[in-house]
Amino acid sequence: MIVFFKAVGFCFLAFSGFGIGVYKSSDLKKKRDNMLDFCLGLKSLAEEIRISAEEIFPLVKRAFSEYSLFDITTEKIRVKSGAFLRKDEEKANEFLMQLGTSDKKGECEKISAYGDLFYERYQELNKEYGQKSKVYKTVGFCVGVTLGLFII
């Protein structure tokens, strides 16, 4: 009976560790995908600003198909907490703070400059995901197994 419980506990820990690894990996994937959506949205936003006479809030809603990325109030647009890595979130909010403060040309140039920056970050995140995805899962599983063995 004790052996059975030990086996169950071992499996539980091993799978929990693996689960945490999978979660970390999928979180990184989600943040990478969000960054790609953000980059694509920026391209649409620049186009919307160029051709439209509307104000920033409706344009953001239209440009970003995934505008669930944002907290939009009547006074400000901010990236939702957890949508990106912390440093990317700060950069994105810094960009959003500056949005709408210049004329059309200035806005398009600003979006283009930040767009390049965010696309670089997307590429880094993509690379990071390729490298870390398996590592997270493997390390999670190994930590689970080690803990399981230690308890046994």
């Binding site: 600003i49 439209s52 006479a53 509307e54 104000e55 920033i56 809030f57 344009l59 006074e75 400000k76 949005l99 709408g100 403060t101 210049s102 004329d103 059309k104 200035g106 806005e107």
Partner: peptide
């Protein structure tokens, strides 16, 4: 001014 242009200077240039 920011509130007047609804954070969209480009739309009111």
């Amino acid at each position: 001014l920011r509130l007047l242009v609804k954070h969209s200077v480009f739309a009111h240039t």
